[in-house]
Amino acid sequence: MSKRIQSYSIERQKARWGWIFVAPTLIFFSLFSFYPIFNAFYASLFRKKLLSLKPPDFIGFNNYSYLLKSPDFWNSIRATVVFTLGTFIPLLIFSLIFAIFIMSRKRFQNFFQMAYYSPAVLSSVVAAVIWLLIFDPRGLANQWVNFALNTPGIDHKWLASSVMVQISAMMVYFWKYVGYFTIIFIVGLASIPQSIYEASKIDGANDWKNFWYITLPLLKPTTILVSIMSMLQCLKTFSTQYLFTQGGAPLAPINVITLNIYHTAIRDHRIGRASAMSIILFIIMLFFTWLQFKFSRTDEVSY
């Protein structure tokens, strides 16, 4: 009897230590994640100006209805969606191709992995600054494209035309992150047991059949993970677009949501409206994260 009581109290003591270990992190997240997101929602219901001494007016969902009618906000949605689709689809396709090609080599696997990953190591500000010079009218981008297309002396207006500046931003992002997703695909490929390929070889399958009927289906969970992760990344893009506009590119074509939030809050001082935009961004990203959880649970493969 006494033994049971003793072990019970040891368990209780251990439980207390569990709480003690978790407590600092839990307090941190309450202060720096949960409180701010509720606060953002609360602030989005007010007309509130930064640095203003006037108490904020409660206006209900007016900020949201204003945004839904504002062409500027819809332009931001358009810019973000175009950027996300235009970046994540090439990212997905090329990182898969790179991973399969690298894994098919017997030598230099490590060299290619490091070479492709290296831009992800540079900071996004550095990346944008380098590409600003490459996109200069006299820069490398024009030189290469004119060489490839044999059209000497043509300026493709990488940062000036509203279509090209969007493509330029996508290229920077693609360049920076393609190696990162290649690595994730390589990990996914490496986890497919070799015995499956051996079995299919005995059955007389060729490389193409192997790829189509074994590799691709078994990579489905990794593919879904990569698509949603890259999509979430693209939705949050800020640095490239910010640097481009600082370097003289037109704002409207690349005015993504995060950039618009920043401008609305810091330049225009409209805290309520910026908070409403933050909440909309949060809901969009929540939706994609929910998708990720849903797919990653139902698509667990076992070999």
């Binding site: 439980a15 709480w19 978790v22 839990l26 997240f29 701010p36 949050k236 933050s278 990203m285 994260t289």
Partner: peptide, 26 residues
């Protein structure tokens, strides 16, 4: 093993869904 461990874990993981860009203003 403590009461509410699963909940604590879920709460912490839940913060991954809150992008910094959405809470930077508050």
């Amino acid at each position: 093993y403590f009461k509410g461990r699963a909940l604590v874990f879920m709460m912490i993981m839940g913060t991954m869904m809150i992008p910094f860009e959405a809470i930077m203003i508050p």
